[in-house]
């Protein structure tokens, strides 16, 4: 009988953690709940950036063996944190699912969303996002075995194509194939790994996804050289950071920190040679690095915010090489500077 007495007491005590948890989270809420009027000052006051990432996307954001977040999206988070606090590690990462990402921005749970989010008109307007410049121009591609001799989408007529279900990828594929009037059999999987496993087993003659993912996955196939990513682009996927609409100061800060990474590459400033550039006589570089003028402090950031970001993560080219170019061997293509025939173009810093 006393056994059950003790159990009952245990049950009553079990209610205690509810109270404990709710009280501790209340204090966390008041810190961040300043409202939209001055999100930049809220973040600066907090001393850390809350960055919404995917967390499960090769090359963009994932947890490496040492438990650190890494990837292209993560480096942009680090650049923003470094520009504001001079500390690239002052970031709290939130893994977000595709469904909850916009809610998380609107409810203020995260400061900035850098989760391979495609910039579209509806997201920019009705969903209430404000997009910073594109950090990665992706597009839907198609991978086929070299032996099949297929060179374009028409060549896949009458064949089966592996695709992940429930994504825009599936819709784009259907649209594109209908446009050229080619019949095909879609083989649909819910899980990305299953898609590539089926392709590797030869259950389909082609597999479609974003070109960055196809290139990454190609390396994991048994014989990468026997597969080729076709030179077709079925959709435009400009991926970039996004913040909530309605706070220009904050969105400007994110926007220009991102531009700074691109501009730095145009100037040729890297994380290694930045010290030399700080002795430069070129007025545009001195202004850019915050040695002259007040570009940074005018927008509420430290005046040398560009230099801080570059010192921490390097310029855009370095970020790209580290996360996409080197591991996957993906050509820069549209992600090249405008001076080299790409799409990256930063407005002047003056």
């Amino acid at each position: 009988m006393s056994k059950w007495g003790s159990l009952l007491l245990a049950m009553m005590l079990a209610v205690a953690p509810i109270a404990a948890c709710s009280s501790s989270s209340d204090t966390a809420g008041t810190e961040e709940g300043e409202g939209a009027s001055g999100h930049l000052s809220t973040v600066l006051g907090r001393g850390s950036l809350v960055c919404g990432v995917n967390g499960q996307l090769p090359g963009f954001s994932f947890v490496n063996e040492t438990g650190e977040y890494s990837g292209l999206d993560v480096d942009v988070c680090k650049a923003i944190a470094a520009a504001m606090f001079d500390d690239p590690e002052a970031v709290e990462y939130r893994n977000l699912s595709a469904q909850e990402r916009f809610t998380a921005v609107q409810s203020g749970e995260i400061d900035v969303l850098i989760r391979n989010t495609t910039w579209t008109i509806s997201r920019d307007t009705s969903v209430g996002m404000e997009f910073a410049p594109t950090t990665f121009y992706d597009g839907q591609g198609m991978m086929v075995p070299v032996a099949s001799g297929v060179e374009d989408l028409e060549g896949l007529a009458g064949k089966s194509i592996c695709v992940q279900s429930g994504t825009t990828t599936e819709l784009n594929l259907t649209d594109q194939m209908r446009k050229i009037g080619a019949e095909f059999t879609p083989i649909v999987f819910d899980d990305e790994d299953a898609v590539y496993a089926a392709y590797a087993q030869g259950r389909c003659q082609g597999v479609t996804s974003d070109r960055s993912q196809l290139t990454a996955r190609r390396e994991t196939l048994a014989a990468p050289d026997e597969h080729v990513v076709l030179d077709v682009v079925m959709s435009k996927e400009p991926l970039g950071p996004a913040v909530a609409n309605g706070d220009t100061q904050w969105s400007d800060a994110v926007k220009w920190i991102t531009y700074a990474l691109i501009q730095a590459e145009e100037f040729g400033i890297t994380s290694e040679n930045i010290a030399e550039f700080e002795n430069s006589e070129d007025p545009s570089i001195r202004t850019f690095l915050g040695l002259e003028g007040s570009l940074g402090s005018d927008m509420g950031l430290p005046n040398d915010f560009t230099a801080r970001a570059i010192r921490a993560v390097g310029n855009y080219g370095e970020i790209y090489e580290r996360n996409i170019g080197e591991p996957f061997g993906l050509e820069r293509g549209p992600n090249e500077l405008w001076t080299n025939g790409g799409l990256l173009y930063a407005p002047p810093f003056r």
Partner: peptide, 25 residues
């Protein structure tokens, strides 16, 4: 894991997106 938590399954998916271990699912 579906709602973005990195519990055992979520962290596994994160590990799987490490370029060094891609396809080791």
């Amino acid at each position: 894991a579906i709602i973005g938590f990195a519990e055992l399954l979520g962290i596994s998916q994160s590990i799987l997106s490490n370029p060094n271990f891609l396809g080791r699912y």
